[in-house]
Design a protein around this nucleic acid. Structure first.
Lengths: 149, 149
DNA sequence: TTTATAATCGACACAAAGGTCGAATATATA
DNA sequence: TATATATTCGACCTTTGTGTCGATTATAAA
């Protein structure tokens, strides 16, 4: 199946559930809101924290929140946080050695397509995703996630 | 890593090593020519036989050969033989439920890209691959594969 | 300082792709 | 018919992505 990993999809859906109130939100509640496996989402969130997209705090009144405004977070950032920086380096035909010097028959074509995909991800912000979901009414049933303090 | 499976790459490289002399060629020799794992190539070839791209015969004077002329075999056929018919149905963001009715933010974009990829694979024949490799001198060191009878 | 709490960590389980190996099967020739 | 031979088949292994669970750690409030 051609495309990014499922983890990227989880990340996008979950991040779209966080709002910008500066309060910490709990992984389990975000998971329910986004309809993704809670235990697995903790792993996804860890990568997003490491990438500087989320911040987190443990304990009472802890939780997770966006590190920056949704308008400054791109899908490309999210993708690279989850799938790594090499997600865009592969050959279409899955060949191990495929480069400008030693190309496969679809190399030039794929180079253009890959860049188009990266460009699309770079130009799509989390804010746009939230707006998109809101317009379609597909953001899940929860309005906002509860918090303490 | 975005792209088709490694098996598709193996298939393309191996098929490019078969010539049209109507003789049977041996999996192990084709594997050496294409520089792919021999034991694994038998599995790949099985799928190509089932798909009607190759024919095979067991025993003495047996082997494998192209079922049709390279000009009538497309990369799309090869792709679907190895990765199945669903290789092109997935969401870019790896979301399970993503359709025209319930779209992800990149759905419309990805629909166009997917079709462009399918079109490229449909328009690229095995003959073109052979020609391409021959021009670049990247077809491996073997000229042709030995055979019996 | 104790306690409740939420993220973090480590271990494990499962499925699919990639990969290997030996036994079984079919086939043309001798 | 017997034999050598090349594909086919089944079993198994490893790695990676997905997913679960319980223990650990950090934190703010009581």
């Amino acid at each position: 199946m051609i495309g990014l990993s499922q983890g990227v999809g989880y990340a996008v859906k979950a991040l779209a559930c966080l709002n910008e109130d500066g309060k910490g939100h709990f992984v389990r509640e975000v998971a329910e809101c986004a309809q993704v496996p809670p235990a697995y989402l903790t792993k996804v969130f860890k990568k997003l924290v490491d990438a500087g997209i989320l911040t987190s705090k443990r304990g009472w009144a802890g939780g997770t929140r966006l590190a920056r405004a949704p308008g400054s977070i791109t899908l490309l950032e999210i993708t690279e946080a989850i799938d790594g920086n090499d997600w865009n380096r592969g050959c279409l035909l899955g060949q191990e050695f495929c480069s400008d010097e030693r190309a496969c028959p679809t190399h030039d074509f794929w180079k253009v397509q890959r860049e188009a995909i990266a460009e699309k991800l770079r130009n799509t912000t989390l804010a746009a995703c939230i707006e998109f979901e809101r317009n379609r009414g597909t953001l899940g049933t929860c309005k906002s996630v509860s918090h303490r303090s």
